[in-house]
Simulated assay, not measured.
Amino acid sequence: DQQTRLRSMNRRSYYRWILRLATDNSLKIIYTPGHSSEVSIPARMNFEADHYASSAQHHRSETFTAPIPTFFMDDYTFYTRDDGWIESNIRTYVKKAQILEASKYMKAPPEYCNMMAYSACSAIVQHYARSGQLPTADVLYSRQKLSDARCRMRCEDIEDQHHIFIQCPCYDEMRTKAADELFRCTNSKLAELGIEEVDRVDLLTAAKSFFSDNESIWPLHY
């Protein structure tokens, strides 16, 4: 049933419009394999259509805008001033909007938040994490200090240690910088100690995957 399938598709009003046009006219829709090595006329026409559709992205000022088929939208369709009609998964849209809004108010942590040294801060965080004292939302929720265990950066997932250090999109940039710095320092130290290239592989692999979903780094998560 095409109508059932269309209910969850992005920009479904356009598809409904096309289907109505196909129903009201003698238009016949035929499947043509795209991005293939076929040289048939339908395949070549499909290639041409893809080519001109892609090229049109570079000439938007010269391209006519298709009318918005509000007459084929759902009976109740969300609308925002910035994005217009929302014909996508509304839960996903709201989730991304919340993360974007929260990121506007994020402040960078102080350069030296504990005893004026990165190593001291790292030691304290590791101590709290290993002893189950790191104040993540799931820990505070279990102790009835919070009413919700979900991430406080509004990404809807449970906020545990693994989520903060590995998954939460709000910290992606920090994780990337930290991973690059860890890899660089590890590689430099191994070279300084004269460790052979063959023996460096495992250590560098571990350093590179420290901020990723790796069972050797996060054994308790699996």
Rank of each mutant, 00 (worst) to 15 (best):
T65R: 13
H59S: 12
S61A: 14
A66N: 10
T77L: 05
W85N: 04
D75V: 13
R81P: 02
D50W: 00
S61L: 09
T70Q: 03
H51A: 13
D75N: 11
P42R: 00
A66K: 09
G84K: 06
S40R: 00
F47L: 15
H35S: 11
S37H: 02
V39E: 11
A66T: 14
P42M: 00
P69L: 01
M45I: 13
I29V: 10
I41L: 13
I30Y: 08
F64D: 13
P67W: 07
I30V: 12
S88Q: 14
V39F: 03
E62K: 04
I41C: 07
I30Q: 06
Y79I: 08
P33H: 01
Y31R: 05
A49F: 09
A43F: 02
F47W: 10
N89L: 06
E48M: 14
T77H: 03
T92N: 10
A66I: 15
H59G: 04
P69T: 00
S88E: 14
Y93M: 05
S37D: 10
E38T: 04
S61M: 09
M73N: 03
D75F: 06
S61K: 06
Y93S: 02
I68D: 10
Y76T: 15
Y79T: 04
P69Q: 01
A53M: 10
F72I: 04
H59V: 11
Y52V: 12
R81T: 15
F47K: 09
D75Q: 14
I29C: 01
D82K: 15
I90F: 13
H51Y: 12
D75H: 12
E87Y: 02
W85T: 06
R91A: 11
T63H: 02
T77D: 01
T63C: 06
H51F: 14
I90D: 01
I30F: 05
W85P: 03
Y93N: 00
Y52A: 07
H59Q: 11
T77K: 01
I29M: 04
R81M: 14
D74R: 00
F64C: 12
I41F: 06
Y52K: 05
D75L: 14
I86N: 05
S61D: 14
I68Y: 09
P33R: 00
F78D: 09
A53V: 07
Y93A: 04
S54M: 10
I90Q: 10
A49W: 06
G34W: 00
Y79F: 13
M45P: 00
T92W: 07
T70F: 01
H51L: 15
T63V: 08
T65G: 09
G84S: 08
E38Y: 05
H51N: 10
Y76R: 13
W85H: 14
H35W: 09
D50K: 02
Q57Y: 13
A53I: 07
I41N: 09
Y76F: 13
P69Y: 02
T32Q: 10
F64Y: 10
A49Q: 05
T63G: 01
N89R: 12
P67Q: 12
G84E: 13
W85I: 14
Y79Q: 08
D50Q: 02
I30K: 08
F47G: 08
P67Y: 12
